[in-house]
Design a protein around this nucleic acid. Structure first.
Length: 429
DNA sequence: TCTGGGGTCCTAGGACCC
DNA sequence: TCTGGGGTCCTAGGACCC
């Protein structure tokens, strides 16, 4: 059966999450910050109307925040992740094929039949998510993923469509595309926009009609695919089976600059522990570890960044093994006298647990099994009592200059018993 | 003073092989 | 002085996404 795509996208997701438990903030400007309360990463419509740009460092818009009484939140990923799951669960109840594309978006496919009133169905879906989770979403429908992204944009921006816009069989497609700037097309970023503008391609419609050979040469096969999708030829299919990741990264900017090797060690051990947990959660192992440390791009004098890769003898998901490798990298990378601002590790060469090839010496490693049991116990305890309950040595120093700054974090309303919201009934005391 | 984090895919170029 | 032609694999870097 022929199918069409629908993109379900939460409106201003992080801001909507914060408002869910603070309904008095509806209609008021709200922003959510990146780690360390550095940049604006989400804005409510009211905040967008104040011309607070996406990605802007907080200190540059302090005056706007103060003048318009904008409500500011540190990021609270435990809350956002949990609400995301709830939205996706509602979708899965209604639809067999769901591709979770990001924390706040999912593609689904809808059958094409004459009787099928797609807009009406999508409106029901939207209402169900609002009712069950409290999350406002917009839905765009079209024959390709790229077009459904555009349809979603229209659904979100133009109030008369009530959050659902169908571009399928719409004889106004070109008229819609003519109003979309080319840099707002999915897959067209800053660099490509420059090249396209130089060739007088300014809108999605211009891009749809662009010369294929030139596109192929200038924007590679990726750009050529985008053009085909704009022409209604579906090249990007629905991926509803989750696959193992190709890499896992854990990196953080430090709350304060770090100069001391011991402090760096603490940060690295912490990040490796998080990455190891991610591996085990996904049931995979990695055989390549890359560590990087850097003074950061804004340090005028004394800049230093470097990274090192270690290939392990065997894929592993054991935190102590990974820590050993990471500290070995750190030892050779560290140079005294610099103010480090960020560090991170990347795990690659990822295979499913148990799929790895045994090496010649694996017979002589009876400790492996014990290690696994230890990791299972560790994960269980930390999942029940919080990530920092059990930690590897050197991470418990009371003074952690690298620790994240989060001054305006909302409670973990939905994932921590101690922080559940309390309902107060009027008239009771 | 203060500037996010986590991913994927593609291409070019080098090393190496026969 | 002249110096093949093909192929694979790996890595670094670029571009993009949310």
């Amino acid at each position: 059966m022929k199918k069409v795509f629908a993109l379900v996208d939460c409106n201003n997701f992080y801001c909507s999450c914060e408002r869910l438990f603070r309904p008095e903030l509806n209609g008021k400007p709200v922003v959510v910050l990146s780690n360390n309360d550095g940049c604006i990463v989400a804005r409510s419509n009211e905040a967008k109307a104040l011309d607070i740009p996406m990605g802007e460092p907080l200190f540059k818009v302090k005056h706007l925040i103060a003048r318009h009484n904008v409500h500011v939140f540190s990021s609270n990923y435990a809350l956002y992740g949990d609400l995301s799951h709830r939205v996706m669960d509602v979708l899965r109840q209604m639809e067999p094929d769901v591709e979770v594309y990001s924390i706040d978006e999912a593609f689904i496919s809808l059958p094409v039949t004459k009787e099928w009133d797609r807009v009406k169905y999508a409106a029901e879906l939207r209402e169900k998510i609002r009712k069950h989770v409290g999350m406002p979403v917009s839905i765009g429908i079209a024959t390709t993923k790229t077009l459904s992204k555009i349809a979603n944009r229209v659904a979100k921006k133009e109030a008369q469509f009530n959050g659902v816009f169908d571009l399928t069989g719409n004889n106004q497609i070109d008229q819609v595309l003519g109003k979309i700037e080319v840099n707002d097309v999915w897959g067209i970023g800053r660099r490509s926009t420059e090249k396209l503008n130089n060739r007088c391609i300014y809108t999605a419609l211009d891009l749809k009609r662009a010369d294929e050979t030139w596109i192929r040469k200038t924007l590679t096969v990726v750009g050529a695919r985008t053009v085909m999708e704009l022409n209604g030829i579906s090249c990007i299919s629905l991926e509803n089976a989750p696959s193992s990741p190709k890499s896992i990264i854990t990196s953080r900017s430090f709350g304060h600059p770090v100069t001391d090797l011991d402090d760096l060690r603490g940060a690295v051990i912490n990040y490796v522990s998080i990455a190891g947990e991610k591996l085990r959660k996904q049931g995979v192992e990695a055989d390549t570890l890359n560590l990087f440390i850097t003074t950061g791009p804004f340090d005028e004098q004394a800049r230093y960044s470097n990274n090192q890769t270690i290939t392990l003898h065997q894929p592993t998901s054991s935190t102590p093994e990974l820590i050993t490798a990471a500290l070995q990298c750190l030892k050779s990378l560290y140079k005294p006298g610099y103010r480090y601002r960020k560090a991170g590790i990347m795990l690659a060469g990822i295979v499913k647990q148990g799929w790895k090839q045994q090496d010649l010496f694996s017979l002589f490693r009876p400790a492996e099994k014990e290690d696994k049991q230890l990791m299972t116990a560790l994960d269980r305890i930390n999942s029940k009592w919080g990530r920092s309950t059990l930690q590897y040595g050197m991470t418990t120093a009371t003074d952690k200059p690298w620790a994240m700054q989060q001054r305006r974090k909302s409670p973990a309303y939905t994932t921590n018993w101690q922080e559940l919201p309390v309902a107060k009934a009027a008239g009771l005391s």
